[in-house]
């Protein structure tokens, strides 16, 4: 158990966590509170620009992120980020502005302030696995997730591209498996853990998403997983919200609950279904959790 509260972070939830991924936000806050980790939301943070901004206007993307990094300076502590896309953009901005002085000058003009790049940006996984540490995480477990077989889905942006997020090994990360191992779950080895889900094509070209996510769910099922765990609201939307549609198109049944990492770790920490927002999931996870005696 964490005895001294030395872990305090500025928190950048990102747009999705205030809307379609409300349960990710809720479970993050509850879990961190239970673990004795402090989170203070960055006041009036705004959109990082995500994929659409850098897709057509990198300077805008870098400037929006640089301004958010500046806002984060108001709160003490490293910056905790939940969404894989926000995490990727903020880290990418730090990396690019560090390396490219022309772009740095342009961004400083755009935000009318010098950019500060020394603040640390961390994904929730890093905080759990490294700052809190696996031992303390394991010590906080009230209800080990024994018997639950989880397919850890990393998606694209937690680890790629090289030298940018530096979260874990770029082609064979284990940080999700490490965290789940510490809370007693079983993780499966599977092929599609780092394949793209189609991300924001969910709005413009959902057909693309259906094809890619079907392959992901098929691979998870073939590996014998009971459920999938993600650390990104877009991956979650594509695998969970669209799952019925995928089943319809491919005439199959997955019935594969998709959890946010904070929901599974929170479950092990003894939090209730309500505290973790499990009812917001589209694929109902309650039958599985009851069958495994976790609820």
């Amino acid at each position: 158990m964490p005895t001294k509260n030395s872990l305090d972070y500025a928190y950048y939830p990102g747009c999705s966590l205030h809307a379609s991924a409300g349960e990710y936000d809720l479970s993050t806050r509850k879990l961190f509170k239970a673990l004795g980790i402090g989170l203070t939301e960055v006041p009036d943070w705004f959109c990082c620009g995500a994929t659409p901004a850098h897709n057509v206007d990198e300077l805008l993307s870098l400037s929006l992120c640089a301004k958010n990094l500046e806002l984060a300076e108001q709160v003490e502590g490293d910056l905790a980020v939940a969404c894989a896309a926000c995490f990727s953009r903020l880290k990418f901005t730090q990396h690019t502005l560090e390396e490219n002085s022309t772009k740095r000058k342009q961004v400083e003009t755009a935000i009318d302030a010098p950019v500060k790049l020394d603040g640390k940006v961390k994904h929730l996984l890093e905080i759990l696995a490294r700052d809190l540490g696996l031992e303390r995480l394991a010590a906080s477990v009230k209800k080990p997730l024994s018997g639950l077989k989880v397919a850890c889905y990393y998606g694209c942006l937690l680890t790629r591209p090289p030298d940018v997020p530096n979260l874990d090994c770029i082609e064979a990360p284990t940080i999700m498996e490490d965290v789940l191992g510490a809370v007693g779950a079983e993780t499966v080895a599977w092929s599609h853990r780092m394949e793209c889900c189609g991300a924001n094509f969910t709005l413009s070209r959902p057909g693309v998403v259906i094809q890619l996510t079907n392959a992901i769910l098929e691979s998870a099922k073939a590996a014998g997983a009971d459920c999938v765990m993600v650390g990104c609201p877009l991956c979650h939307g594509n695998l969970d919200i669209r799952q019925k549609e995928i089943e319809g198109v491919y005439k199959t049944t997955y019935n594969m609950p998709v959890f946010y990492l904070t929901q599974l770790v929170g479950l092990a920490a003894g939090l209730s279904a309500d505290q973790l927002g499990l009812d917001a999931l589209i694929v109902n996870p309650l039958p599985l959790l009851k069958e495994k005696h976790l609820l």
Partner: peptide, 8 residues
């Protein structure tokens, strides 16, 4: 999709 696999 900006998945960054190519750059990797």
């Amino acid at each position: 999709a900006s998945c960054e696999t190519c750059s990797t």
